[in-house]
Design a protein around this nucleic acid. Structure first.
Lengths: 335, 335
DNA sequence: TCCTGGCACTCGAACTCGACGAGTGCTAAT
DNA sequence: ATTAGCACTCGTCGAGTTCGAGTGCCAGGA
């Protein structure tokens, strides 16, 4: 039963510290919080919590602050918080009149950064195999052409290829007709086989192989994974709780898509509703002072949306916002 | 003739200050720089420079630092600096194997941020009227469709439209055939007229107007202007010279595309090879501690690439890098 | 007329010192 | 198991001090 009170003490410490950004002492807790016990008792509890590694004191005569482990414990025993109505409405209006996928992602990331006052991150919906609907070739100068592939699931991929040698207009037009006739409606192995045969045909244009490769990769799910972020200024804002010299590495990590993508994938694998990585749990030096809250969205819950901020963030609020945005995104994307 | 020496003193002050980030005093200048005069003389010159508003002292017993006006004067009398060979090579290799327009822009902005160690900004090539090459419609669910417009100049625009009411497959296919037949190869007023007539035809699908509108806007130059940036961490890096509390507003301004776009347009209007805005010259509170170096690129020199950093930046080096990247970008984009 | 050496002066940075007080751990009593 | 009390630690704050970089000005020399 004292066990239960210790949990309450920990929760109080986390909440106070998040609110004030200052180490919280036993007296303050006994006064402000209605725990019904004296400061001495709280001190004893604190000593135990410290032994368990959940809290720490920056220096001898200061209050306590939660450790990464402390936040983790706090988060794990957290009930799902409700999202303020105003925020719910904001999500609805913000996302409802998006005009294409880019627009949806862009709006989402901005919205989430405003709701959470953190850096928001949205991974582009990861793509799945899809049939080819139409292939377009456009000349660019004498030596290059643009290949545009429109897929049946409304994705558009494009890429420039080198022609290698001048191609006559007739050959060019013929290639367009043929490749469309060959690829349309196909997918996967059959698409690849058909295109390989087409490209290998005698008398074929020399760049047919390049076109075929790109079409196959586009149909397979295509372009590289990408994340976008917004609200970077929230990291730098005074009182964000991050030291000035820790934010540059974080910004680097954000622009370094690879790091972020790997981390998000790890989190997706956990399969929780909303998954949280706290401080060192990110396993990235640059992010060791920050936490990430992420949730999956989309068809196979294969893409992620998240918020990144200092470890001393408002976990309940952030988790609620991320969860809500992920839900709305799912609705929009699953059309 | 003392006029000339004063210029030299100013230049020395700027260079020293940029290098050390510390107010520079008369003694240091007399010693380190071979100006051939004593510190007393330099002090006199400094007094005059200060009267002219080119330099200032943060407090009575400190050295001088350049004012915005001082930097301006320094920049204006600057000869074009050469770009280090290593950088030239970097540009070549970095941009040579870009795969499409997005890729070019992305690589450019990263490259430039690395070369300058500043925040790099690239405006997407601004678009000009172009003939329609192919229009593709893809169903998305029962109530929406994606319109994809491929233009003759290798641009791809896409947008989701609402169908309003269910449309039969036959009507859908017919619409695709007709709109392509109507629009292909056309541009401007003739395109608009043709499409308006098509959309107004009796028995037409109800969403024909929406398609027509979008096709016209896409052909006209299409999607909104956009800038991308990279290297935000350079702002936050220690010793960048920006106070911790000034960088959040800068990040906001960067994400707030509008502000940046207007500024870039103003700079483009100046028509110089490389144009520079220093501190308050940006006319934006948030950017009042930063400078922007920008150069136009592309066909009509209608798009811009630039670097943004603290007013105490290395102007010659930054200008050289921006100029070089703009040139290479022009080559690539003008294909 | 322009430059220079010299000198008195200013003022911020850095350091020391002591008072203050928030917060702690421990112990004895309930 | 809880609490009141108490001695102790240690960081923060303000005042006082020194130190030195840098200045402005003036008088003498080219």
């Amino acid at each position: 039963m004292s066990e239960e009170r210790r949990r309450a003490v920990l929760r109080a410490i986390v909440e106070d510290y998040v609110a004030t950004h200052e180490p919280v002492g036993s007296k303050a807790l006994a006064d402000a919080r209605s725990l019904g016990v004296s400061s001495a008792t709280i001190r004893n509890d604190m000593a135990i919590l410290e032994e368990e590694g959940l809290i720490a004191q920056p220096h001898t005569s200061a209050g306590r602050i939660p450790t990464d482990l402390g936040y983790r414990s706090f988060v794990d025993q957290l009930a799902a918080a409700a999202l303020p109505d105003a925020h719910k409405r904001a999500i609805g209006t913000f996302l409802s009149d998006a005009v294409d996928l880019n627009d949806v992602v862009e709006r989402s990331v901005r919205l989430l950064s405003q709701l959470t006052r953190q850096v928001a991150v949205v991974q582009y919906p990861s793509l799945r195999e899809s049939a080819v609907r139409r292939i377009e070739l456009v000349r660019m100068g004498a030596e290059h052409a643009l290949v545009v592939v429109v897929s049946a699931d409304a994705r558009v991929d494009q890429r420039t290829i080198a022609l290698g040698e001048p191609t006559s207009d007739e050959a060019f037009e013929r290639a367009v007709r043929e490749v469309n006739a060959t690829a349309e409606g196909l997918t996967g192995a059959r698409l690849e086989a058909a295109l390989t045969m087409w490209a290998a045909a005698p008398d074929q244009v020399p760049w047919a192989g390049a076109v075929a490769d790109f079409v196959v990769s586009a149909a397979r799910g295509g372009t590289v994974e990408r994340v976008v972020f917004a609200g970077a200024s929230n990291l730098a804002r005074v009182g964000s709780g991050l030291e000035a010299d820790t934010i540059a590495p974080v910004l680097d990590a954000l622009e370094e898509q690879v790091v972020l993508l790997r981390l998000l994938h790890e989190m997706a694998a956990e399969g929780d509703d909303v998954s949280v990585r706290i401080g060192a749990e990110t396993h990235h030096e640059a992010l060791s002072r920050t936490s990430i809250v992420a949730a999956a969205y989309g068809r196979d819950a294969a893409s992620l949306v998240g918020a990144l901020g200092p470890t001393r963030m408002d976990y309940p609020g952030t988790m609620a916002a991320v969860r809500a945005v992920a839900r709305y995104l799912s609705k929009v994307v699953e059309l």
